[in-house]
Write a protein that binds this DNA or RNA. Structure first.
Length: 546
RNA sequence: GCGCCCGUAGCUCAGAGGAUAGAGUGUUGGCCUCCGAAGCCAAAGGUCGUGGGUUCGACUCCCGCCGGGCGCGCCA
């Protein structure tokens, strides 16, 4: 038995709810109250409503309110959300910010799928979205790649230098070396002896740094040639990979360019002018602890080089100077400790940190045959996004990636994603779409006839449920935009597909009676349209036949 | 130790403070002379980690504890 409210009578709550609803729906409270009165006697749940108090009435009213607008259904299929949430605000989604030091792996894939779907969902909700890739082409990792490439190149030219364990070991490095050799011959060949002092260093990381220095000194201007070549190859490979994955960008921002255009120095100067930077131990520190960070952070090292954080400050300042109302960064979850300092920097620069949202994406772990597939970029044994796409297909990959809340660990079951069977949710949704296409083909009528379809001919409980489900689509998209959670769209699509499959199995669409047939076909077409729209948001195809 | 994330059916996971907590998968049993069986229907499966608190009402919000993941660089 449900208990009656203790401290107040129902009436008080009902009034309160009516007022809140009136506010939310922007309707006169008197009208809402009238609806309450009208709705309640008809409710089979009246007894429970009384027992449960006003909250139930609230729920019931929302529901009945929705049913009143069910006639919007048939055109709901042609809409992408309501477009109300974004209201034309400019939003930037930055994702797959990566060191272009090798092929994208499955972890990047999740960020790409998530970021792309999120951007689509935001666009569908009325935001003016810019999709941006931040290229980390400045730091040590790129130097390590350039060094690794040169070492492989030397190998090809008969010069053997012990390859560092912490260098990039992948096969693609050898390919780049071969390409350089094909183009430049032995121009970059130097004697192994140049590495002698560097190799004496016992600490692995220091030795690597020393080897990089050796490469820079020995090669001079040629170092930049190799560096740039490796960057170009990796970046275009990355771009092609993502494009094949249905992930494209409106802008590519180079970290290096932030230095070359003086934006890093300008951002730091601005911080300094506002009194947020101090010198200590020969380095420059940003006083991020003032803004809730655990400690202050170095922006310029003792050796005069800027940290990654420094360019990131400049980058985030730049985002808002470019006029974005909101910015969303998609990061790997291992970077969460970095959030406080970036938001702190924005606050210190006089910008509202609330305008920046960091969406953390947890790791994706691949399973094959029930066994965890290991990966590590440096060792070159990773499973690349390309391999994954080839194995399970783009559709399954895109769908599986967003089938989990982004901050949830993702166990990616390769066998399941590959299976063209009943347990694969991608096929389940696509199958519903193909089914509608198939029915329409068999019908063979003129689509314009469907304009005569009348929703009131849809009378069964299943049809009502299907209509209600269709009506939820704009909400699903808006909610996905609100929570930065495209998985809500994936879940919605699965539910819609299930609703349709059930309807289809229970009800014959191509019946004799013309009115009923048209109404049912119109409903099926609405379902197809919503499936198409939703799948498009997720970057998944909607095949006519499978 | 501190910070962030997570703990919901055997498994993988949804769940804007509101109805009897839902899907998928797995298990069991049904449904193709009929628009595609890649489908459908039904059964079974739960102390929502745990103990408090706030509330008319808590899976949801707050605090403590237990368990798991990640992060705590003058790396990027």
């Amino acid at each position: 038995m449900l208990e009656r409210p203790k401290q107040a009578e129902h009436g008080d709550y009902a009034c309160n709810v009516a007022l809140q609803l009136a506010k939310a729906l922007k309707r006169p409270p008197r009208e809402i109250a009238a609806q309450l009165v009208a709705a309640l006697p008809a409710s089979p749940h009246l007894e429970k409503a009384e027992a449960a108090g006003a909250g139930f009435i609230n729920f019931f009213l929302k529901r009945s309110f929705k049913q009143q607008v069910v006639h919007r259904i048939l055109d709901a299929g042609t809409r992408y959300g309501t477009g109300m949430r974004g209201q034309g605000k400019k939003a930037q989604v930055e994702f797959v910010s990566a060191n272009p030091t090798g092929p994208l792996h499955v972890g990047h894939g999740r960020g790409a799928a998530y970021g792309a779907s999120l951007a689509n969902v935001l666009a569908a909700s009325g935001f003016d979205v810019t999709r941006e890739f931040y290229v980390n082409d400045f730091g040590r990792q790129m130097d390590i790649l350039a060094l690794s490439t040169w070492l492989r190149y030397l190998e090809l030219n008969g010069v053997t230098v012990p390859f560092p364990a912490n260098g990039y070991q992948g096969e693609y490095v050898r390919s780049m070396a071969a390409a350089i050799r094909a183009e430049h011959g032995a121009r970059f060949r130097h004697d192994a002896g140049v590495f002698m002092p560097a190799l004496d260093e016992t600490d692995e990381e220091l030795r690597l740094d020393a080897m990089i220095e050796t490469a820079k000194h020995t090669l001079g201007g040629d170092y930049d040639t190799i560096h740039r070549f490796a960057l170009d190859v990796q970046l275009s490979d990355c771009r092609d990979d993502l494009a094949e994955f249905g992930v494209t960008f409106d802008a590519w921002c180079s970290e290096r360019s932030l230095y070359e255009t003086g934006r890093v120095e300008r951002a730091l100067r601005r911080l300094e002018e506002r009194g947020h930077v101090y010198d200590q131990d020969g380095a420059k520190w940003f006083r991020s602890s003032r803004y809730g960070d655990e400690k202050d952070r170095v922006v310029r090292r003792e050796n005069g080089l800027y940290t990654y954080f420094a360019s990131d400050i400049a980058y985030h300042l730049d985002k808002f100077e470019r006029g974005f109302d909101i910015a969303i960064d998609v990061w790997g979850a291992d970077h969460h400790g970095y959030i406080a300092r970036v938001k702190g920097a924005l606050a210190a620069l006089g910008l509202d940190p609330q305008r920046l949202t960091i969406a953390l994406v947890q790791f994706a772990v691949l399973y094959r045959g029930g066994e965890r597939v290991s990966m590590s970029t440096r060792a070159g044994e990773f499973v690349t996004l390309r391999e994954l796409r080839k194995e399970v297909g783009n559709d399954a990959a895109r769908f599986f990636y967003v089938l989990r809340k982004s901050d949830q660990h993702l166990d990616f079951d390769l066998d399941l994603a590959k299976s063209q069977s009943t347990d694969n949710p991608v096929y389940y949704v696509q199958y519903a779409h193909a089914r509608v296409c198939s029915v329409l083909e068999q019908w063979g009528g003129d689509a314009s006839a469907l304009a005569r379809a009348d929703v009131t001919d849809l009378v069964s409980e299943r049809e009502a449920a299907l209509l209600a489900r269709l009506l939820e689509y704009p909400d699903a998209v808006e909610n996905a935009a609100r929570d930065f959670a495209p998985h809500l769209v994936a879940f919605y699509l699965r539910e819609l597909a299930a609703e349709f499959h059930g309807y289809y199995n229970a009800t014959r669409l191509l019946v004799e009676e013309e009115r009923v047939k048209l109404a049912r076909l119109a409903l099926a077409i609405a379902v197809r349209q919503v499936l198409r729209n939703g799948l498009a948001l997720l970057g998944v195809s909607a095949p006519d036949r499978m």
